Simulated scan of single mutants.
Amino acid sequence: MAATGSFRTERFSIRAEHQWLHGTIRVPLRPGRHPAMVFVSGSGNGSREEFTPQAEFLARAGVVTLAYDKREIGYDFRSRDFGLLADDVLRMVGHLRARPDVDPARTGVWGSARAAGWCRSPRPRARPSASSCWSPPRTSRRCARSRGR
């Protein structure tokens, strides 16, 4: 995949249950509808900045990318509501699919580590058309099981 194109950056905020979620969208400058990718953090505080190199590479290659800061309400080291996190992923996928510069049939999710478990939706209409799992070696077996392998 050649990553030589230019892109613009947009900041956004979306109302989610009990708080606002903030993120960055990178849009290729080429006209037309593009495939799109949502980046989802695994365990930890989950800053959108952790995906900057990947998001910029894909945007240069013609993919609209969205990375967001993980919620602060409903996620901490003692209490993790994975259903709430999954709803946030679906909210981001829906946000991208609603854009006129995104091809909704080619919208995917890139989940790192623990995010692989909540990136998949049990609701078929809400599922992204593709998903990718990145995981450090210690959790890769669990990640593969969550993907049905």
Rank of each mutant, 00 (worst) to 15 (best):
A2C: 08
A2K: 15
A2F: 14
A3F: 15
G5L: 08
R8W: 03
T9L: 12
E10I: 01
R11I: 03
F12S: 05
R15W: 06
R15L: 13
R15S: 15
R15E: 13
E17Q: 14
W20M: 14
L21Q: 01
G23F: 04
T24S: 08
I25C: 11
P28R: 04
L29A: 14
H34F: 06
V38S: 00
V38M: 03
F39Q: 00
S41F: 08
G42I: 06
G42M: 07
S43F: 14
S43N: 14
G46C: 07
S47L: 11
S47W: 10
R48V: 01
E49W: 06
E49V: 09
E49N: 06
E49D: 08
E50R: 15
F51Q: 02
F51A: 03
P53T: 05
P53Q: 03
Q54F: 14
E56F: 00
A59W: 02
A59K: 03
R60G: 01
R60W: 00
A61C: 01
A61M: 01
G62E: 02
T65V: 06
L66Y: 05
Y68I: 03
Y68M: 05
D69T: 05
K70R: 15
E72L: 13
Y75K: 05
F77T: 12
R80F: 05
R80G: 03
D81M: 04
F82W: 15
G83R: 11
L84K: 11
L84A: 11
L85F: 08
V89G: 06
L90R: 15
R91A: 07
G94C: 05
G94S: 15
L96R: 03
L96K: 05
L96D: 04
A98G: 13
V102Y: 01
R106E: 07
R106P: 02
T107S: 06
T107M: 03
T107Q: 01
S112I: 14
S112M: 11
A113Q: 07
G117Q: 05
R120H: 14
P122W: 04
P124C: 09
S129F: 01
S131D: 14
S132P: 02
W134I: 08
S135E: 10
S135P: 00
P136I: 10
P137W: 08
S140N: 12
S140C: 10
R141C: 04
R141I: 09
R142D: 12
R142M: 12
C143L: 12
C143K: 00
R145Y: 11
R145K: 11
R147Q: 13
R149W: 11
